[in-house]
Simulated scan of single mutants.
Amino acid sequence: MKILITGSNGQLGSELKDLLKDHADKECYFLDRKQLPLEQTLIIQDILGMYQPDLIIHAAAYTAVDKAESEPALADAINHLASEEIAQYCRLHGAKLIAISTDYVFDGNSDVALTEDAPVDPINTYGLTKLKGEQAILKWHAESIVIRTSWVYSTYGNNFVKTMIRLMTERDEISVINDQIGSPTYAKDLAQAIVDIIEGEDWVGGLYHYSNAGEISWYDFAIAIKEIKGLDCKINPIPTTQYPTPAKRPKYSLLDKSKIKRTFKVEVPSWKDSLVQMLANLS
């Protein structure tokens, strides 16, 4: 099987590279932004045609949430129009597609875990462009698997966990938002779920949710990082109103993982267990 992975240097792409390197039955091509410039939508299908993949894992995205507010056209080209080109290629050439989306397609006004058919209403440009990308993928290639995830972190790349460790090492006191609720996702767990889906017997297209199990705030996440690492730093809980950003964030975006567990029998580890594992791998 020939697999093409976009976003090869991202958190998920890097974890997929680690997981797939020992799979002799899979010929994998990992493309970065230079090899596959997603903003250049007119050449995407030609580039994909050079590799003739049986399956594409579309993990690349424009993920600078705040910057997207001032670069809406670029964010739309990468998250929406490029995804449409990839889906069209898969439809034309009979390739399978797994694409990654985000909890930011929701407005954050729920108070129960969000299922795949919960109403969508993004409150920032990033979320809107990702939603349009989802819709384009499923319009052109309904057999695609689109996985929404949230709060992704890894030993690779820049993320909340690494930022917290750095700040807690440098400072005696920090403040972290305590009124945005969801669940983090260790990219290695998501990568494993994707590999399990590829190797499984059933392929069922549609929308799915995946994050680690549990429900926490960013403040809870920071406290856990501090405790596991044994750091000595005071963490103050603050409301979102005290930390204004160019892009609004959903207040509540906890994803219900029942469908992906039921359909593909994938593992969903608890957020705390996965954090412990990631921090051990990091050090």
Rank of each mutant, 00 (worst) to 15 (best):
V146R: 04
A73C: 11
K26T: 05
I181F: 10
E71F: 02
V65K: 02
K162H: 10
L138E: 13
I223C: 08
E227L: 10
Y219V: 03
A82P: 04
G7K: 03
F106Q: 04
Q135V: 06
L20Y: 09
K130A: 03
A61H: 11
E170I: 02
G182V: 09
K248S: 06
K251R: 14
Q192E: 13
E84Q: 14
Q88N: 13
L92Q: 13
N159F: 10
Q180I: 08
M168P: 10
E134Q: 13
S211V: 14
D232Q: 14
I225E: 02
I228T: 00
T115Q: 15
E215V: 06
Q242C: 10
Q45W: 08
H58G: 06
G157V: 08
L97G: 07
A224C: 10
D76I: 02
W218E: 05
D103G: 09
N109E: 12
K21D: 15
A193Q: 12
E170F: 01
D76T: 11
A95H: 01
T185A: 06
H80S: 15
Q52N: 10
S144D: 06
G49C: 10
P244L: 14
Y89I: 00
P122H: 12
T240I: 13
M168L: 10
V112E: 12
Q242G: 15
G214M: 01
I56K: 00
K139Y: 08
N158Q: 12
A59W: 11
Q35C: 06
S283M: 05
L255M: 11
L190E: 05
T149E: 00
L279N: 13
Y104A: 01
D121I: 00
T263A: 05
P119H: 03
G206K: 03
E116P: 00
A247I: 00
G108Q: 08
N178R: 01
